[in-house]
Amino acid sequence: MANDTASQRLHATVTGSVQGVGFRYWVRRQADQLDLMGTATNCDDGSVTVIAEGPTSSLDSLRDVLESGSTPGHVDGVDVRFAAATGKFSDFHEA
């Protein structure tokens, strides 16, 4: 993630008590403030998948708040991977 102006993709799997507590809505608000595009989706195993695309600094900020301990519910872990952006999203939404 060397170039801050290049669009990148963050793929995070968030585990813990993160469903039914407003977590996806909270993630969307954070992403909107950072001008990120993507989605937050509940998974069958109780985790939430967050996919976001945008500048490196904004993705780093989103990762930091996901790991901050100040989220709705209780986060046990955040597994983050970065890749090239696909341009698939036109906004950030909850799925």
Score class of each variant (00 low, 15 high):
Met1Glu: 03
Asp4Thr: 01
Thr5Glu: 15
Ala6His: 12
Ala6Asp: 15
Ala6Gly: 03
Ser7Met: 01
Ser7Gly: 04
Arg9Met: 03
Thr13Tyr: 09
Val14Arg: 00
Thr15Tyr: 12
Thr15Lys: 13
Ser17Ile: 14
Val18Ala: 02
Val18Arg: 00
Gln19Arg: 07
Val21Cys: 06
Gly22His: 08
Phe23Gly: 01
Phe23Met: 02
Trp26Cys: 04
Arg28Pro: 01
Arg29Pro: 00
Ala31Tyr: 02
Leu36Cys: 04
Leu36Ala: 08
Leu36Asp: 01
Gly38Pro: 05
Asn42Phe: 08
Asp44Ser: 12
Asp44Cys: 05
Asp44Asn: 11
Gly46Asp: 08
Gly46Asn: 08
Ser47Gly: 12
Val48Phe: 05
Val48Ile: 06
Thr49Gln: 14
Thr49Trp: 08
Ile51Arg: 10
Glu53Gly: 10
Glu53Tyr: 11
Pro55Trp: 02
Thr56Phe: 04
Ser57Tyr: 07
Ser57Glu: 12
Leu59Asn: 00
Asp60Lys: 11
Arg63Ala: 14
Leu66Gly: 03
Gly69Gln: 04
Gly69Trp: 13
Ser70Trp: 13
Thr71Ile: 06
Pro72Leu: 03
Val75Gln: 07
Asp76Ile: 06
Asp79Trp: 12
Val80Met: 05
Ala83Trp: 04
Ala83Cys: 04
Thr86Ala: 06
Ser90Gly: 04
Asp91Ala: 13
Ala95Tyr: 11
Ala95Cys: 06
